[in-house]
Design a protein around this nucleic acid. Structure first.
Length: 987
RNA sequence: GCCGGGAUGGCGGAAUUGGUAGACGCACACGACUCAAAAUCGUGCGGAGUAAUCCAUGGGAGUUCGAUUCUCCCUCCCGGCACCA
C-alpha cells in the first residue's frame, strides 16, 4: 500500500468561466509583469537558434462590418491548439494574426455608411480583435499586420516593382472581364460561373487598359511543384488531395499539337493554325472552325462570298454575355466562310472554314480542326449543319476471357472479320449463336454469326457464306453495312496466334426459313438461337463490342472519343491512335505544344480602396516604376471614392496626386491611377509576420531562413484557386530573386470544414441563423466553445452547429474541475493507482498522436474516457491530475491554467513540458479473446497476454458458449488471431 | 460530361496491415436525491422477438474462415472544372 497523507478539505470555488477567462487572458499577454515564468511574455515568438521552430498560420480574416460568427474561429482554435502543443514540446512557435482589409467589401461598406473606408476598417478590426481575444488565443500581437497600413503595403508595392522590372507585369488592352455593378475589371479567379464573385452580376467582356501579371510563365512550376518531393522523398507540400486537384484543374494543362492549314486559294498569304490534343484524328478533319473574334476573320472578309451573313453573326456573338456564350448545353450556331477553303496537310484534301462561338478566342489558337466522328462538340455541329463525318479510329476492345486472352509472346496478325446481325423473315427477332466451345467460361455466351474474311472476299459475300455455314439459312439478303470496323484483340486457339480482329458489322434479313443441314463440326460448336429486342441483354453482355453494333443498328450512334486503332488514315492504318500523335504531327509538319487554361492575372482595379500601383507614365520615357526608396506610394485622401465606371479609378481626378515628375528624366508625367486587387496583400503576408517591423527589407534573410516555410496553414478550401495560387506564384517570383529560400510557402495545408447554421444552411445574416461567439462565451465560457467546436466532428468536415450538444463539453470541464477535490483524499491501492496511471498514459499517447494529425475530436474523446475512468476512483495523486491538466491545456487554456496554478505551480501550464507516455503502461496483462464459429461471434474469454495459440484454441473449443455450435459438427479449420480471436470453422 | 470526397442508431460521430460495429458526446426513458423542479449521480438505450436467435454500416454482386474496411456494378449527396478542342 502507498500511504498518503489525507489533506484538509479544500474550499475551492465552483467553476465559473467569467471569473477566470478574462483574468488569464490579461496575464498571458503581459506575463512579464505577472511573473508567469520567463522574463518575456509567454506567447512572444523569438528566433531561438537552440530551438526547433514551428510556424503555424491562420488565413487572416477580412474584417467585415458584421463581426465574427461561431464558424469563423474554428480554424483559429485548431491552430491555437497546435501552437500551444508545439510550444509545450519545446519548439519556438510563430503563431501570428493580422487583418486583410483592402478591396471591394470595405469600400462598398464605406459607400453605404458614407464614411471613409479607413474608419470602417479601424472599427471592424477593433471589433474582430476583441472577439478573438475573448477566446483566449495565444497570438503574438506584437507581430500584428494590416494590409492597408502604408508600412505594410510599401512592400506589396515593392514586390510589384520587382515583378515589373522582371517583365512579369505588362499593360494589356485585350478585352477583360468587366463587372458593370462593381465598375471594375476582374481576373478569371474572381468569377463564379461567369458572374462577379462579389455581387453576382454577370460579367461583360470589355476591352480596357489593364495591368496584368504573367502568372502563365509559372504555370508549369505551379503544376509540377504540387508533386515535388523533398530530399527524403516525402511530398514537399502536404496538402489535401482535393485542393491540389482543384489547382491542377485550374491550371488546366493539356498537351497537343499545333497544325497549320493553308488556304487553297494562293492569294491568302496567311494560314490557319489550330491547336489540338488529338492529332491522331487529323485524317478525320472535315472542316475547320475559327472563333468569331479571330484576327483572320477580318482579313478574310473581303474574299468571303457571304460577307453580310458573316458580319451579322459576328455582331450577334458580341451581344451575348459570357454565360450565354459558354453554355455547353445550347444549340450550336455558326456560319460558313463561303469561298474559303483550307487544305488538310496530311491528305491535301480541301475542307470548308466556318466561324462559330463554340470556339473560344482566348484558348489555344482560337481555331480548331473539326473531327466530328471523334469529338462531341464537332459531332453536334456537323449534325446540325449536315457536314460530313469521317471515322478514323476503330474503338479497341481486348478480350476479357482468360481462355482467349492475348498472349504477349506471340506475334499479332490483323484479321478482317465480318459480324452479322440477322433479322427473322417474318418476326421481330434476331439470329444468334449459342457458343459451346466457350462453355468453360461458365455462362451463356451468345454471339453474332461471324467469321474471318478470306483473301479478297467481298464483305457482304463473306457474311452470307458464314450465315449459310454456321446456321444453314440459305436466303440471307444483305441490307447494309453498319459502319466502320471495331478492333478486337484476342488470341486465336485454332490459329495459334494473337489477332487484332477488325470486325465489320453487317446487317442481313432472311427472306424465308429455308435451311440446309449444318455440318457436324459446326453443330458441335454451337446452336442457333432467336432473340427478341427485349432479350438482347444476353447478347449485349457477352462481348464488349456488342453494344456498339447494336447502337449502330438502332441508329443511336454517338461519336467515339476514346483511343483505338487508326483506320482511313493511309499509312497509319492499323497503328494505335495514342502512339500515332507524334508521328502524325510530324507528318503534317506541325509541332507538339502545351497549353494551359490558366490566364494571366488581371491585376488592376478601377477602384479607390487598394494599393496604388507604383508606376508613372512619362511622355518621354514611357512607363517607369517609382524608385524603391520613394515607396510607399500612399493612397491619397479623396473627396469621392465612388467608382467612375469609365475605366479610370477615382484617383484619376486628383490632379495634385496624379501629376508628378518622371523619376528618370524629371519631365512631366502622370501616376498610374489603377489600384491593386484585394488578393495582393494576402499573397505574401505570411512572410511579413517573420519580421513585421523591418524598415529596410521585406523580410530579413536570416529570419526568413529560420521561420520558413509555414509548417501548418489552416483555412477555408474556397481559397484553393485564388489566394493559394496567387501566393504560390508570388512566392516563386520572390524565390527567383533570392528573397525567400524555399520554392513553396506552405508545407502542410489543412482546410477547415464550415460550421453551418442549426438549420443546415450556410450561416449568415440572410438566413437569420447566425450564432455569435460573444453570446456563447457569455453563457458557457470560451473553453466550452473551443472544446465543443473541436469535438463536433472531423475538423475538415462541414457540420451543423447545435447549441444543445454543447452542454456535453461544459459538463466535461466541470467534471475535470471537480476531480480536483479527489487529489490525495484517501489512500489508494496499488491496483487503483496503476489503473489511473494506465488510463493517463493511454490518453497521453492518443492526444499526442491526434493533435499532430489534427484529429481533435478523437483526442478529446480519449480525454473524456480517461477522466471518466479516473473519476470512478476515490482518489488520485497531484502529479496524475497535473498530467491531465497539461493534456487539456491546448484545448481549454483558461481552465487548465486556473487549476494548474491553484495547485501551487508558479509557471504557466502553457510553458510546462508536454508529458510523455511510457509504453509499458499501454499493454494490459489480460486480453479478451473473441470466439467465433463460422465467422459469427459466439462468445469470449479472458486470457493472459502470454497465452500460446494452442492454449487459445483449446480454451475456445472448451467454452460452454461455443459448445452448442460445434456439437455434432466437424471442425475443418481453426483460425487463431493472436491477442484477438479464435474462429472455429465447422460443417 | 470529367475529376476529387462522402453515405454507419433518433442526432454529431468512433472503429482500417480485414478480426466483438456503434467508442465519446447529445437526445430520450427509468431510478436515486428533493416538498417540488433544476443541477447532479446511477441504469438502460440500432431493429425484430417472451426467449433462443435473427437482421443491420446507401443498394446489388464478389473475394475471404471472417468485410464498415478489399474488388466490380448501381443510387444519392457534397466540392472543383467544364463548348478548354
Amino acid at each position: 500500500m502507498i500511504h498518503r497523507m489525507k489533506k484538509k478539505i479544500n474550499v475551492f470555488p465552483v467553476y465559473n468561466p467569467a471569473n477566470i477567462e478574462n483574468k488569464w487572458q490579461k496575464k498571458w499577454q503581459s506575463a512579464n509583469r505577472s511573473g508567469l515564468g520567463s522574463a518575456s511574455k509567454i506567447y512572444k515568438s523569438t528566433e531561438d537558434p537552440n530551438k526547433e521552430k514551428f510556424y503555424v498560420l491562420d488565413m487572416f480574416p477580412y474584417p467585415s462590418g458584421e463581426g465574427l460568427h461561431v464558424g469563423h474561429p474554428k480554424g483559429y482554435i485548431a491552430t491555437d491548439i497546435v501552437s500551444r502543443f508545439e510550444r509545450m514540446n519545446g519548439k519556438s512557435v510563430l503563431h501570428p494574426m493580422g487583418f486583410d482589409a483592402f478591396g471591394l467589401p470595405a469600400e462598398n461598406y464605406a459607400l453605404k455608411t458614407k464614411a471613409h473606408p479607413e474608419i470602417g476598417v479601424k472599427k471592424n478590426v477593433a471589433r474582430y480583435k476583441k472577439q478573438l481575444e475573448i477566446l483566449g488565443f495565444d497570438y503574438d500581437w506584437s507581430r500584428e499586420i494590416n494590409t492597408t497600413d502604408p508600412e505594410y503595403y510599401r512592400w506589396t508595392q515593392w514586390i510589384f516593382v520587382q515583378l515589373f522590372k522582371k517583365g512579369l507585369a505588362y499593360q494589356s488592352f485585350e478585352p477583360i472581364n468587366w463587372c458593370p455593378s462593381c465598375k471594375t475589371g476582374l481576373a478569371n479567379e474572381d468569377l463564379e460561373e461567369g458572374r462577379c464573385e462579389r455581387c453576382g452580376t454577370p460579367v461583360e467582356k470589355k476591352p480596357m487598359r489593364q495591368w496584368v501579371l504573367r502568372i502563365t510563365d509559372y504555370a508549369e512550376r505551379l503544376l509540377k511543384d504540387l508533386d515535388a518531393v523533398d530530399n527524403a522523398g516525402l511530398p514537399l507540400i502536404d496538402w489535401p488531395a482535393s485542393i491540389k486537384e482543384s489547382q491542377r484543374n485550374w491550371i488546366g494543362k493539356s498537351e497537343g499539337s499545333l497544325i497549320t492549314f493553308t488556304f487553297s486559294n494562293a492569294s491568302h498569304k496567311k494560314n490557319i493554325e489550330v491547336f489540338t490534343t488529338r492529332p491522331d484524328t487529323l485524317f478525320g478533319v472535315t472542316y475547320v472552325v475559327l472563333a468569331p473574334e479571330h484576327a483572320l476573320v477580318a482579313d478574310l472578309l473581303p474574299v468571303v462570298k457571304n460577307r453580310q451573313e458573316v458580319e451579322a453573326y459576328i455582331s450577334q456573338a458580341k451581344l451575348e454575355t459570357e454565360i450565354e456564350r459558354t453554355d455547353a448545353k445550347k444549340d450550336k450556331t455558326g456560319v460558313e466562310l463561303k469561298g474559303v477553303k483550307v487544305i488538310n496537310p496530311v491528305n491535301k484534301k480541301e475542307v470548308p472554314v466556318w466561324i462559330s462561338d463554340y470556339v473560344l478566342a482566348d484558348y489555344g489558337t482560337g481555331a480548331v480542326m473539326a473531327v466530328p466522328a471523334h469529338d462531341d462538340r464537332d459531332w453536334a455541329f456537323a449534325k446540325k449543319f449536315k457536314l460530313p463525318i469521317k471515322e478514323v479510329i476503330s474503338p479497341l476492345f481486348v478480350s476479357e476471357y482468360s481462355s482467349d486472352a492475348w498472349r504477349s509472346q506471340e506475334p499479332e496478325v490483323i484479321r478482317p472479320t465480318v459480324v452479322c446481325i440477322i433479322k427473322h423473315w417474318s418476326e421481330n427477332k434476331y439470329l444468334f449463336l449459342n457458343k459451346k466451345d466457350l462453355a468453360d467460361l461458365g455462362k451463356d455466351v451468345v454471339v453474332g454469326v461471324a467469321g474471318g474474311i478470306d483473301g479478297g472476299e467481298v464483305h457482304e459475300v463473306a457474311g452470307a457464306r458464314e450465315i449459310l455455314e454456321e446456321t444453314g439459312y440459305k436466303n440471307a439478303r444483305f441490307v447494309k453495312s453498319l459502319g466502320e470496323p471495331v478492333a478486337y484483340r484476342y488470341y486465336s486457339k485454332n490459329g495459334k496466334q494473337n489477332r487484332l480482329g477488325m470486325l465489320y458489322p453487317l446487317y442481313y434479313e432472311l427472306k424465308d426459313g429455308e435451311q440446309v443441314q449444318v455440318s457436324e463440326e459446326e453443330k458441335f460448336l454451337h446452336q442457333t438461337t432467336w432473340l427478341t429486342e427485349k432479350e438482347m441483354d444476353v447478347y449485349l453482355n457477352t462481348r464488349p463490342f456488342n453494344p456498339i453494333f447494336w447502337e449502330r443498328f438502332k441508329g443511336t450512334t454517338r461519336p467515339y472519343t476514346g483511343y483505338g486503332i487508326l483506320i482511313n488514315s493511309e499509312k497509319f492504318d492499323g497503328t494505335s491512335s495514342a502512339d500515332a500523335k507524334r508521328p502524325i504531327t510530324e507528318y503534317a509538319g506541325g509541332a507538339m505544344k502545351t497549353t494551359y487554361k490558366l490566364r494571366d492575372w488581371v491585376f488592376s482595379r478601377q477602384r479607390y480602396w487598394g494599393e496604388p500601383i507604383p508606376l508613372i507614365h512619362c511622355e518621354k520615357c514611357g512607363v517607369v516604376h517609382v524608385p524603391e526608396k520613394d515607396l510607399p506610394v500612399k493612397l491619397p485622401k479623396v473627396k469621392s471614392y465612388e467608382p467612375t465606371g469609365t475605366g479610370e479609378s477615382p484617383l484619376a481626378t486628383i490632379d495634385k496626386w496624379v501629376n508628378v515628375k518622371c523619376p528618370k528624366c524629371k519631365g512631366n508625367a502622370k501616376r498610374e491611377t489603377n489600384t491593386m486587387p484585394q488578393w495582393a496583400g494576402s499573397s505574401w503576408y505570411y512572410l511579413r509576420y517573420m519580421d513585421p517591423k523591418n524598415k529596410k527589407v521585406l523580410v530579413d534573410s536570416a529570419r526568413e531562413k529560420y521561420w520558413s516555410p509555414v509548417d501548418l496553414y489552416v483555412g477555408g478550401a474556397e481559397h484553393a484557386t485564388r489566394h493559394l495560387i496567387y501566393a504560390r506564384f508570388w512566392h516563386k517570383c520572390l524565390y527567383d530573386i533570392g528573397i525567400v529560400s524555399n520554392i513553396e510557402p506552405f508545407k502542410k495545408l489543412q482546410s477547415v470544414g464550415l460550421i453551418m447554421g442549426e438549420d443546415g444552411r450556410k450561416m449568415g445574416k440572410r438566413y437569420g441563423n447566425v450564432v455569435n461567439p460573444d453570446d456563447i462565451v457569455a453563457t458557457y465560457g470560451a473553453d466550452t466553445l473551443r472544446l465543443y467546436e473541436m469535438f463536433m466532428g472531423p475538423f475538415e468536415q462541414q457540420i451543423a452547429w447545435n447549441t444543445s450538444s454543447m452542454v456535453g463539453s461544459r459538463r466535461f470541464i466541470e467534471k475535470v474541475w471537480k476531480l480536483r477535490e479527489k487529489i490525495d483524499v484517501t489512500e489508494v491501492s496499488i491496483e487503483a493507482d496503476l489503473y489511473i496511471t494506465k488510463n493517463i498514459h493511454k490518453a497521453i499517447k492518443k492526444v499526442t498522436d491526434d493533435i499532430q494529425v489534427l484529429r481533435f475530436n478523437t483526442a478529446i474523446s480519449s480525454l473524456m474516457i480517461a477522466v471518466n475512468e479516473i473519476d470512478k476512483q476515490k482518489s488520485l495523486t497531484r502529479p496524475q491530475y497535473e498530467v491531465i491538466l497539461q493534456l487539456l491545456a491546448p484545448f481549454v487554456p483558461h481552465v487548465a491554467e486556473e487549476l494548474w496554478m491553484s495547485l501551487g505551480n508558479k509557471k504557466s501550464v502553457h510553458i510546462s513540458v508536454w508529458p510523455e507516455y511510457d509504453a509499458k503502461y499501454l499493454v494490459d496483462a489480460d486480453m479478451t479473446i473473441i470466439v467465433q464459429v463460422n465467422g459469427k461471434v459466439r462468445g469470449s474469454f479472458i486470457a493472459t497476454i502470454d497465452s500460446s495459440n494452442a492454449d487459445l484454441e483449446q480454451r475456445a473449443k472448451n467454452l460452454p458458449d461455443t459448445n452448442k455450435w460445434i456439437e455434432g459438427k466437424k471442425i475443418i479449420k481453426v483460425v487463431v488471431v493472436p491477442k484477438r480471436l479464435v474462429n472455429i470453422v465447422v460443417v
